[in-house]
Amino acid sequence: MSNTISAAQNWKRNQQKLAPWLFLAPGMLMFLIYVLVPIFQSIWISFHDWDGLGAKEWIGLQNYVELMDDDTFYVSLHNNVLWLVLYLLSIPAGLAVALFLNQTVTGIRLYKSLFFFPFVISQVVVGLMFTWFYAPNFGLFSQSIEWLTGTQVAVLADERYVTYAIIVAGLWPQTAYCMILYLTGLNNINTEQVEAARMDGAKGFKLLWYIILPQLAPATFIAMVVTVIGSLRSFDLVSIMTAGGPYGSSQVLSYFMYEQALSEYGFRMGYGAAIAVVLFLIMMVFISLFIVRMLSQERNA
Rank of each mutant, 00 (worst) to 15 (best):
I5P: 15
Q16M: 15
L18M: 06
P20L: 12
L29D: 05
L32R: 03
Y34H: 12
Y34L: 07
F40V: 14
I43S: 12
F47I: 15
H48I: 04
W50L: 01
L53F: 08
G54H: 06
I59T: 06
D69T: 06
D71A: 14
Y74N: 08
L77H: 05
L82F: 15
W83F: 07
V85E: 09
L88D: 02
G94V: 02
F100Q: 00
S113D: 04
F115K: 04
F116I: 09
F117N: 04
F130G: 03
F133I: 01
Y134V: 03
S142P: 03
L148Q: 00
V153Q: 09
R160D: 04
A169I: 00
L171K: 04
A176S: 01
G185P: 02
N188A: 12
I189W: 05
I189T: 05
N190S: 06
T191W: 08
V194N: 11
V194Y: 01
A202W: 03
K206F: 01
L207D: 02
F221H: 13
I222H: 08
M224R: 15
I229A: 05
S231D: 08
S234T: 07
V238F: 06
V238N: 06
A243P: 12
G244N: 07
G245T: 09
P246S: 01
Y247G: 12
S250C: 05
Q251T: 08
V252D: 00
M257D: 15
E259H: 13
Q260H: 11
G266Q: 04
A273K: 03
A274I: 10
F280H: 09
V285M: 14
L295C: 13
S296D: 07
Q297F: 15
Q297P: 09
R299Q: 02
